[in-house]
Design a protein around this nucleic acid. Structure first.
Ligand code: FES
Ligand code: FES
Lengths: 145, 145
DNA sequence: TGAATAAAGGACAAGAATATCCTTAATTAT
DNA sequence: ATAATTAAGGATATTCTTGTCCTTTATTCA
């Protein structure tokens, strides 16, 4: 198992890709993005449509259209994307799948897992959608292969 | 998304359940385990069969038969179970699904994620199958609900 | 206005994970 | 030996995730 669903991995990579394009003032077309993050184009379309509907992505139809993020979205935490796609499980769920993670009825891994889960949560809340634009523009970070 | 697959959650809970029964010298029957960890009985059967085949579980057929773990297995790390069920992805995979997690071609989350992933790995390698037997016998920890 | 372009949307297809059913094999107790 | 019990194994069913196809809508440009 991975931390994120495949759908969420695509979503995050796409959002980072679109963000760094937006930073240069460009919009990103579906083909461009799919090639840039190495994802199935038509599946990615669904994911971006979904993010659009939820207000986590902007788009324009027609020639020279495409996807982009505005200043507001650039500043949003990555956790917003993760929540929209994978829900709250990663932030609040029990490691062993108990219906309710709690101090009252803790599973064996609860104490140690809680701390790790909080770190994941912190990381995703601290990281913004636009937070890696410089490194991406500079080619220091990768979104594919 | 959760950290573990559902199958792996069942596997870990079952292993802990069987372990604490074994500590009292008892074997655990399928029905008993399924009720004890709140899992679908016949699906759990498959999981335990699989662990048996891989040498991570012992079993005896017939009346008063059931599943148990010996001293050797009690001391094995939980990571053995996780690896057997979910593979190595959790320990080595890229957070964003890049084919290869590496320093050379890191994804944006690499630096921060690496540390978290290592903590998960440490936790699972440090924790043994029998490590929670006292707390489970004492009812301090829960494997269901 | 009309043609071309690109995202939106609905429906469907393929695959993987989860769950169940039924028969077989091993063990125990009578 | 026989019957009862319990795990093993193979096949199938269901559900969810992932991926594709095709039509519609909005926008741009000539
Ligand atoms: S109860 Fe399992 S992680 Fe909190
Ligand atoms: S490259 Fe993504 S976590 Fe290492």
């Amino acid at each position: 198992m991975a931390i994120f669903s495949k759908t969420c991995e695509y979503a995050i990579r796409a959002v980072f890709y679109i963000s760094h394009k937006s930073a240069s003032g460009d919009r990103a077309g579906l083909k461009d993005i799919a090639a840039g993050i190495d994802s199935p184009e038509l599946y990615l379309a669904k994911i971006l449509q979904d993010l659009s509907r939820k207000g986590l992505m902007r788009s324009v139809k027609g020639p020279h259209g495409g996807f982009y993020v505005d200043a507001d979205l650039l500043a949003r935490p990555l956790s917003d994307i993760v929540e929209a796609v994978d829900g709250f499980g990663l932030f609040h769920g029990c490691a062993l799948g108990l219906k309710q993670c709690s101090e009252i009825n803790p599973c064996p891994l609860h104490e140690q897992f809680k701390s790790i889960r909080d770190q994941i949560s912190d990381l995703l809340h601290r990281t913004t959608i636009g937070g890696f634009n410089e490194e991406l523009l500079g080619g220091l970070l990768s979104l594919k292969k």
